[in-house]
């Protein structure tokens, strides 16, 4: 800032803070910095930095029916999950933000529970429950499982968005003669667009990256990309994983940019 008084004391501490923070930034970014170059490396060795650069690993990935199949399975599940979670989450979130009722705290904590309960517990519960319903191994079962874990985040983001809206606008619209649904569509939804877009991206990414529930529920024909990757990392680490990782990171980066563009960080600080 021009005109700021240069205090050597605070400058020294500022430098100390930066000196401590930079290695941590490096540590946080290391996984990305390492994987992306390796994705363009040779197909026979996992070394960093790669000895030579090519698109061979991506070629292998896109020519492998198993990898491609899991990619499409993941996309299918993520899209279905996002659609369902957005519909249910927007309606439920709006309703919860605008209504006071007995036991609201209980209902809220029930709805929010999947964000606190260890995913493994949810995964096991879904596995046992869906076995009883005889739907394990289906795409539907994974979608339902993912809806369960993404909903709390969607609801939190919708509630936060609704809380920022001026209630008088909704009341005013009703006073001017709009019915509840008309009011919701013409007044609430247009104003919520930023929250809804970031919630949708977030839901999509959560579902696309989700391992544990899919690990419990996936059948032979419904292996998602993360499950296939988890298996691969567990048994034999092949260089193709670098390409898969890079694709997943690119998706994360996209979501990250959207999130920043919409000035909504994450649901954790809500």
């Amino acid at each position: 800032m021009p005109g700021q008084i240069d205090d050597p004391h605070s400058r020294r501490y500022r430098a100390l803070g930066t000196g401590l923070a930079v290695p941590i930034y490096v540590f946080l970014l290391a996984p990305i910095v390492v994987t992306v170059p390796m994705a363009f490396g040779p197909t026979n060795a996992l070394t960093f930095p790669p000895a030579s650069y090519s698109f061979d690993l991506f070629r292998i990935f896109f020519n492998s029916p198993a990898w491609l199949g899991s990619l499409f399975e993941s996309l299918k599940i993520a899209i279905a999950t996002t659609a369902l979670a957005m519909i249910a989450g927007t309606l439920a979130g709006y309703w919860m933000a605008r209504h006071e009722f007995a036991g609201k705290g209980l209902v809220t904590s029930m709805i929010m529970s999947p964000s606190i309960v260890p995913i493994i517990v949810i995964g096991l519960g879904l596995y046992l429950y869906f076995s009883y319903l005889r739907i394990t191994g289906t795409t539907l079962s994974i979608v339902l499982g993912h809806v369960m874990v993404t909903l709390p985040y969607v609801i939190v983001m919708v509630v936060a968005g609704v809380n920022k809206l001026d209630r008088n606008l909704e009341f005013g619209a009703e006073l001017m003669g709009a019915g509840p649904m008309q009011m919701f569509v013409t007044v609430v939804i247009p104003q919520l667009v930023p929250s809804l877009v970031s919630a949708a991206f977030f839901a999509f990414l959560l579902s696309f990256d989700e391992v544990i529930i899919a690990w419990f529920l996936a059948g032979p024909n419904t292996v998602t990309l993360p499950v296939k990757m988890f298996n691969a990392l567990h048994w034999e680490i092949s260089p193709v994983i670098a390409a898969v990782s890079t694709l997943m990171t690119a998706l994360s980066l996209l979501v990250c940019i959207v999130a920043i563009g919409l000035r909504k960080w994450t649901p954790t600080d809500v």
Binding site: Y25, L28, L29, P31, I32, T35, L205, D209, V211, P226, M229, F230, L233, S245, M248, T249, S252, L253, V255, C256, A259, I260, W265, T266
Partner: peptide, 11 residues
């Protein structure tokens, strides 16, 4: 910070 936040745990 956000990019690592959104990066898959598998990556």
């Amino acid at each position: 910070v956000l990019l690592p936040f959104w990066t898959s745990i598998l990556v």
